[in-house]
Design a protein around this nucleic acid. Structure first.
Length: 462
RNA sequence: GGCCCCGUCGUCUAGCGGUUAGGAUCCAUGGUUUUCAUCCAUGUCACAGGAGUUCAAUUCUCCUCGGGGUCACCA
């Protein structure tokens, strides 16, 4: 069974990059009827917060990416890690290192001065004397000093590292006993039964260290997929400083989960020329071996397009429901369908849709000056008067077509072009020169409100 | 700097030795629309550079250049 995981460090909100690897992991697990597990990497007590964990879970909830099973918190697994540390110590695969921080720093500085790679010198690797006083030791693992470490990666292919280039006896437990990242990752992934690790390629260079741990503990290696980074427009790794990277910020801006997920799945992955993917399609089509090798630059143009696509294709009931998040209650509006049909094709975001809706439902308190000048020259006022009189006399105005007929009649009776009535009427109703079809607008507003707005405009121009 | 990864239109990408290098987005133009938006059509735009290998390289190899990642008692 395929078991994948997402293992965030709760130091802040969930961002776009993390979400994408989570999505990939989720899709791959679902495709294989496997499990998608969640692990919170909170071993660094100083930097982690409960709020951050909650924020991450909230984001997943919004997007509908549900994890399987219970959440694993590394902070609650100290005994487990301690057990494995003891095991390695007992087996002579790890040892206590009493080098002081000062000495370590000193060592690094000389190495740097000599233009050498900074690495621990193995001073306590085979130490069996009496421990120096007053120093709490760290635990270091005995890493291979030479030879090749091969990472068989499902995205990058075989990546070979030379032990002497990258390894030293790295710390697996701090002086206070707390285990370190590369150590616990290997243990947790193994214990949680994770056999396919999909993560950012910033972890590729950590992988050899984790392999050392896997091997020391006699664990089977999972399959690795290192997915390329998402870069900002400057071409750098996406960071929290890059503005809108908090997933929940997208919700506030009016993006839909479908659009965001569709956008992200196409960043670094593709399926021929297909652009639009439903969740079901993503699950069926996704395969991590189709992930690109190169980083992509994050750019919202396509997100906007996808979002408007999904809004256009959403049912009006769903949209009405989503609009309640913007303080709009449309469920009781008798022309909800007409309203949403008209407005959803000109909204890029749900927020746009909300704004557009509010705008149309609010009686104009002022008129765009340019529009006024253009529309209210000549006999616009008398045309509006005639139109007002016509609809006042008509008690059967409900649908856009009813209003359309009324406009048609005026045009014929007065022997004028459509623009002669359309322009002033549009300004009267909407306060400006652009907007949805007038027949729809009038149907949405209803006869009374339509009359009111026409009267207001006439008054303002007489 | 060492090590590792990457390099097709501005952006997201297809391509897996022979293609007029395709799609999407963006932008521009035209059509539809009384306006705007939608929709439709058309157009501009790319294989980083140089050596090889080959009858033939965007595709394979090497080098250069460029970009990125990583080198903690952070994750």
């Amino acid at each position: 069974m395929t078991v994948t995981r997402f293992a965030p460090s709760p130091t802040g909100y969930l961002h776009i990059g993390g979400l994408r690897t989570a999505l990939f992991s989720y899709l791959w697990a679902k495709k294989n009827n496997g499990k998608f597990l969640l692990r919170i990497e909170d071993t660094d007590k100083a930097r982690n917060s409960k709020e951050a964990t909650e924020a991450i879970l909230k984001a997943f909830d919004w997007l509908g990416l549900n994890h399987d099973g219970v959440i694993t918190y590394q902070s609650q697994r100290d005994e487990i890690y301690a057990k494995y540390i003891k095991q390695l110590l007992d087996e002579g695969k790890a040892y206590k290192c009493y080098m002081s921080k000062e000495e370590l720093t000193q060592l690094r500085e000389t190495q740097m001065a000599n233009n050498e790679r900074t690495k621990y010198n193995g001073k306590f690797r085979d130490f069996d004397g009496t421990a120096p006083e007053g120093i709490e030791p760290v635990i270091r693992i005995k890493a291979p000093l030479s030879g090749e470490i091969l990472v068989k990666d499902g995205v990058k292919g075989d990546v070979s590292f030379q032990a002497q280039d990258i390894l030293d006896d790295f710390v697996i437990a701090r002086a206070d006993g707390a285990p370190t990242y590369n150590f616990v990752v290997a243990i947790d992934d193994h214990l949680m039964g994770i056999n396919e690790v999909i993560r950012g390629d910033d972890h590729l260079s950590n992988t050899p260290k984790q392999i050392v741990v896997y091997e020391a503990l006699g664990f089977d290696l999972p399959k690795f997929y290192h997915v390329p980074m998402i870069h900002n427009s400057a071409g750098k790794k996406l960071s929290k400083r890059d503005g809108a990277t908090d997933v929940m910020a997208y919700k506030e801006m009016g993006y839909t989960p479908e659009a965001l997920l569709n956008f992200l799945v196409r960043l670094g992955w593709s399926h021929g020329d297909q652009e639009i993917f439903s969740m079901d399609e993503m699950i069926h089509l996704f395969d991590p071996s189709d992930i690109n090798k190169s980083a992509s630059i994050y750019n919202t143009e396509k997100l906007d397009w996808l979002n408007s696509h999904y809004i256009k294709n959403s049912s009006n009931d769903l949209l009405a429901q989503l609009l309640t998040g913007y303080g709009l209650v449309l469920s009781s509006h008798d022309k909800k369908e007409i309203l949403l049909d008209e407005l959803k094709k000109r909204a890029k975001t749900l927020k746009d849709l909300a704004d557009l809706t509010k705008e149309i439902l609010t009686t104009p308190s002022s008129y765009d000056e340019k529009a006024l000048k253009k529309a209210f020259k000549g006999d616009a006022v008398s045309v509006l008067n005639a139109f007002g009189a016509k609809i006042t006399a008509n008690d059967n105005l409900h649908l856009p077509s009813d209003y359309h007929t009324a406009m048609q009649e005026i045009v014929t009776e007065l022997e004028i072009g459509f623009g002669k009535i359309g322009q002033p009427l549009r300004v009267a109703l909407l306060g400006k020169m652009s907007g949805p079809g007038l027949d729809s607008v009038m149907a949405i507003l209803g006869k009374d409100e339509t009359m009111l707005r026409i009267a207001n405009a006439i008054a303002a121009n007489s």
